[in-house]
Design a protein around this nucleic acid. Structure first.
Length: 574
DNA sequence: GCCGTTTTCGGCCCGACTGTTTTCAGTCG
């Protein structure tokens, strides 16, 4: 079952879509959309709030608050049911097709009775769309193509996949003569966990050269749009890449605009409007005279709006504008703050590099400390034994001091069994410097069982970090069902850190849970869970997720000096 | 339907590109 906030958020979003499809007031649709996001991102459980409490959520007024109250009382919202009865679910699904929005979806349903993707495909094949207003030959072709893409690709890719493509393109474009600056923007710059398309921004007085270079790259399979300042292509991986070229003096305004998010930009533009200014990708202008005020750097643009520069991972309209206005933006944790990795493997279990190779790589990264945490015996396929573990500890101790200031911690990644027990008893556990504990099986326990299981692990005085706490694999396995708020509370109380696992297909906890857990006073460990030397570089994605969760250096135990870290790892034991 | 440095009504972000139009609507970001 989804968290009540997500449930209500999804319902409000559905209502917004249905209002848009039925040609309802566009502003009303927009308000429901905003409310959907506010509710989903709100820290408190909305099912526990009364109407007055609900109205304190931004963009929720009397009408929406009453609807939410009714939803929890009756299990449904009347107006949503009414529109659902009028518009089949398939019509809303049609709008997932690129170039097909709510208006056209409604025309298809109204005039041709089409209410699903297969029906649309059949209608196209049968030529049933000819003569329909707004549906010329080119539109038909676009629809076919859109359906194909939708079926082929699904939608988004893991952030590391997009990052590699983007960094490659940025490097190619940066080398073009006349290219002043070039960088990626959009959701990639905001470090979202998955990426739909890649936004590249460049500054140049010769945009055509850059456009031409992009369209002729080997990795480009199709040119979607090709204009004066904007070109969109699709790569051979199926990713869409949008390139915008602006004049160098507009760099700051353009970067701010193309970084988004859209809701964040709506907020900054509203602030501009209130000051009789107009903000666009070309700059910040005076409304009356049209005079350009600033545009060179993001810093300038935010400053003129009365705001400090806001780090991209915060730009989601999740309270960053309010925090910025109040001078309360967090100083986000950065990769430079990280003093060591606390969850890594070697070829003693399922890693591919030796202890010596991993430790040398850690030293090369300039870490102050580094934990080796191979799997414990209950993950039986890894064939761990007490003897092997103790032998590894001796090897670790022997390496100590070999790499200058690098201190080594000998640890393990325990399995949290279905009852919440772990591999060893207190005597053996006491010999480790650090213990990560993770769920590796029985992912589909009931919510109650899973909650108890995780709580019991937190209560174990030797468990320091809950590894990849929800067990999700992005696009493959859903997060476990558990009362996460109860887990967060227990972590804060017992001095158990939650992991922000940096592996791009995990990113677990995710940004929203990190933000929620932080409110309980939980501490975090940003770890790579590296199984190979190259995996140590995945840290950047964990950092991005932590930043999106508003974490500061103080929230993250592996930014702390070793002394402070060791005190935390004792977990109140004498 | 929400909200208030425009405060209980009247606003609500802005621009590029496409396709089907013959002056603009729809979609997207």
């Amino acid at each position: 079952m989804a968290r009540p906030n997500d449930e209500v958020g999804a319902l409000l979003q559905e209502y917004a879509d249905l209002v848009a499809i039925t040609g309802g007031d566009a502003y009303r649709a927009r308000v429901y959309e905003k409310a959907a996001r506010s509710v989903a991102g709100y820290h408190a459980d909305v099912s526990t709030l009364d109407a007055a409490g609900l109205r304190r959520i931004p963009n929720v007024g009397t009408s929406i608050a009453d609807k939410i109250v009714a939803y929890f009382r009756t299990g449904h919202i009347d107006v949503v049911e009414e529109l659902r009865a009028k518009i089949p679910a398939g019509v809303r699904e049609l709008t997932a097709i690129p170039t097909l929005g709510p208006r056209k979806a409604m025309v298809l349903y109204d005039k041709r009775g089409i209410s699903s993707v297969p029906e649309l495909l059949a209608a196209l094949d049968a030529g049933k769309l000819t003569g329909l207003k707004g549906f010329g030959p080119k539109t038909e072709e676009n629809l076919r193509h859109g359906i194909e893409l939708l079926q082929q690709i699904g939608s988004r890719v893991h952030i590391n996949v997009a990052m590699e493509v983007a960094e490659g393109i940025v490097a190619e474009l940066s080398a073009v003569t006349g290219c002043d600056r070039c960088t990626y923007a959009g959701s990639l710059r905001r470090m979202r966990e998955t990426i739909g398309d890649i936004d590249i921004l460049a500054a140049s007085r010769h945009p055509q050269r850059l456009m031409e270079t992009l369209t002729h790259l080997d990795a480009v399979s199709e040119v979607i749009a090709h204009g004066e300042t904007k070109t969109s292509v699709r790569t051979t991986h199926g990713m869409q890449v949008d390139l915008r070229v602006v004049r160098p003096e507009a760099w700051g305004a353009a970067l701010q605009y193309f970084t988004g998010s859209k809701p964040h930009n709506v907020r900054t533009r509203e602030i501009a409007v209130r000051q009789k200014l107009k903000l666009s990708e070309y700059g910040l202008f005076e409304v009356g005279s049209g005079k350009l005020i600033v545009s060179k750097s993001e810093d300038e643009v935010y400053a003129r709006l009365g705001l400090p520069w806001i780090p991209p991972p915060l730009r989601e309209d999740r309270g960053e504008i309010e925090a910025a206005l109040a001078g309360e933006l967090p100083t986000l944790v950065t990769q430079r703050d990280i003093r060591g990795d606390l969850h890594t493997h070697t070829n003693l279990t399922d890693g591919v590099a030796s202890l010596g190779e991993m430790v040398a790589a850690a030293a090369a990264r300039g870490y102050s400390y580094y934990a080796i945490t191979d799997h414990a015996p209950n993950l039986s396929m890894q064939r761990m034994t007490d003897e092997k573990m103790l032998a590894q500890r001796a090897e670790v101790r022997a390496l100590e001091g070999r790499y200058g200031k690098l201190r080594l911690l000998h640890g393990t990644e325990l399995n949290i069994d279905p009852d919440g027990e772990v591999d060893w008893g207190p005597e053996f556990l006491a010999g480790f410097d650090i213990c990560v504990a993770s769920v590796h099986s029985h992912f589909t326990q009931s919510r109650d069982e899973m909650t108890k299981r995780l709580l019991r692990a937190c209560e174990n005085p030797y468990v320091n970090i809950i590894g990849h706490p929800t067990g999700r694999l992005i696009g493959q396995r859903p997060p476990v069902e558990a009362d996460l708020d109860a887990v967060f509370k227990a972590c804060a109380r017992t001095g158990t850190a939650l992991e922000v696992n940096a592996f791009p297909d995990r990113l677990d906890l995710n940004d929203e849970c990190v933000l929620r857990a932080k409110r309980y006073g939980v501490k975090f460990a940003i770890d790579t869970d590296a199984h190979a030397v190259a995996h140590l570089d995945m840290l950047r994605y964990g950092i991005g997720t932590a930043q999106r969760g508003w974490l500061t250096r103080d929230d993250v135990i592996n930014t702390w000096p070793l002394r402070r870290l060791k005190a935390f790892l004792r977990k109140g034991r004498s």
